[in-house]
């Protein structure tokens, strides 16, 4: 967590999160987030060696559903929600292979 003191590269992280920020937003968030990360550093004081992480609030396992076909949505409802559609499909700007 020592990295935190160097501060976060807000611009880079915002790009990872696909958020275009203005220069003002970047500057504002930079200060606020650095302050929050500084606060979070109090966790450094804790020794958690040997402690299991908690990912779920309740210990439950093996929740399955049978492989049985259920109802799909009405196609018209699906397309009605699309900001842009053509030929019953969602239209997007040209996808370049990543």
């Amino acid at each position: 967590m020592s990295n935190a003191t160097q501060g976060m590269d807000v611009g880079y992280v915002a790009h990872l999160a696909r958020l275009e920020l203005t220069a003002e937003e970047t500057a504002l968030f930079q200060g606020q987030l650095d302050q929050i990360l500084h606060y979070v550093e109090q966790l450094n004081a804790l020794d958690v060696a040997g402690v299991e992480p908690t990912a779920h609030a309740i210990p439950v396992y093996n929740v399955f559903r049978p492989d049985e076909v259920g109802r799909s949505l009405d196609h018209d409802d699906v397309i009605a929600n699309a900001p842009s559609a053509a030929n019953g499909q969602f239209r997007v700007p040209k996808i370049i292979d990543q």
Binding site: Q89, F90, R91, V92, K94, I95
Partner: peptide, 13 residues
């Protein structure tokens, strides 16, 4: 599945 068409792409889920 993405299909490329003139001026964009179409997505079928």
């Amino acid at each position: 599945k993405n299909t490329h068409v003139a001026g964009g792409s179409l997505v079928d889920y």
